[in-house]
């Protein structure tokens, strides 16, 4: 492992409960670890601990010996952590200087970061005038100045348009293909499915599931998703809750955990018996969202 959390715990001063409780996970070079969890799950705290910004209350962060140089573990925070009154290029120069870079090496790193973030067309504009997507790209480019071996990306696509999101996801994949280790937090499961080689689901400061995408999805078995044309009768909802771990995923859209695909026939029969009109039904291997709902018992963005 290039970077690993070992039984990591953290409690904020005066907090009633721990933000992280004995979390163990790690990431290797050439791998993207997707860190999934609802708001308040402890993702950002874990990232801050891995970045060395805060010290753990218990446990430790184990770093590969190659990560001792400044900038080798690069953190991309959720916020636009740069100076809005400076241009993108000036921001890059300031942070490159803080990393101790100077002269030709500094200029080369800045040009490379500009190329990575595709910032060339607006690099001389004040950062405050950039669009949300441009700011996200600058935020990422700043982290690349140190030519990092490990990247810690904390919700790097929050608030961006689909084009910028696609660009950022492509960039993450390219960084992985260069052999860098990436920890990518999000509460957008489709993003995690798109880039992650391994996934960890975090809630209330604990790792609920961790492994490859397939392994994590297999934990939830077969899932059915049905959309109906009216409310579920209470007796039916209670029965399904008991037998199929029923959970709502949208307006009159429900997720059920089935023992086998054949059980879907019984579900549809029950709807017909209770005169609930069916609009659509899907059945198959559980998605990441299904696993998440099963493990956290709540919709992904319910407290966003």
């Amino acid at each position: 492992m290039m970077l690993a959390a070992e039984a990591l715990g953290f409690r904020y001063p005066k907090a009633a409960s721990a933000a992280l409780d004995s979390v163990s996970l790690g990431v290797s070079g050439g791998e993207v670890m997707g860190l999934l969890g609802p708001n308040g799950a402890g993702k950002s705290t874990l990232i801050a601990l891995l970045a060395g910004v805060i010290a753990p209350t218990s446990g430790r962060v184990k770093r590969d010996a190659r990560l001792s140089t400044a900038g080798q573990v690069a953190w991309v925070p959720q916020d636009f952590a740069f100076y809005p009154m400076l241009t993108a290029r000036e921001n890059l120069a300031v942070f490159a200087g803080v990393l101790g870079l100077s002269g030709a090496a500094c200029a080369a790193r800045i040009e490379r970061a500009i190329a990575y973030g595709q910032l060339a067309t607006f690099v001389d504009r004040p950062a405050r005038t950039l669009s949300g997507g441009m700011k996200r790209r600058l935020n990422l480019a700043l982290a690349l100045l140190g030519d990092p071996a490990v990247l810690l990306l904390d919700e790097p696509t929050a608030g961006v348009d689909p084009q910028s999101r696609a660009f950022l996801l492509d960039t993450v994949r390219a960084l992985r293909n260069e052999g860098r280790a990436v920890i990518y937090t999000s509460h957008y499961m489709e993003e995690i499915e798109a880039v992650a080689d391994r996934v960890a689901i975090l809630d209330y400061g604990c790792v609920l599931a961790e492994g490859t995408l397939d392994a994590v999805c297999a934990l939830a078995g077969t899932h059915a998703r049905i959309a109906v044309g009216g409310p579920l009768p209470a007796p039916l909802a209670q029965d399904w809750q008991k037998h199929y771990a029923l959970s709502a995923v949208g307006p009159q859209t429900w997720s059920l955990q089935l023992g086998a695909p054949e059980e879907l026939a019984g579900v549809l029969e029950a709807l017909k018996r209770h005169n609930v009109p069916l609009r659509s039904a899907q059945c198959g291997r559980a998605t990441l969202e299904d696993v998440f709902l099963q493990l956290t018992q709540r919709a992904l963005r319910d407290d966003a």
Binding site: A51, G52, V53, P77, D79, F80, F82, Y83, M85
Partner: peptide, 20 residues
């Protein structure tokens, strides 16, 4: 204002993470 922006938008923490 610069110090508040550094504090609020995580710039100060980013500087710390960069070894400052």
């Amino acid at each position: 204002p610069v110090f508040i922006a550094e504090r609020q938008f995580g710039t100060l923490v980013r500087l710390r993470a960069m070894g400052a």
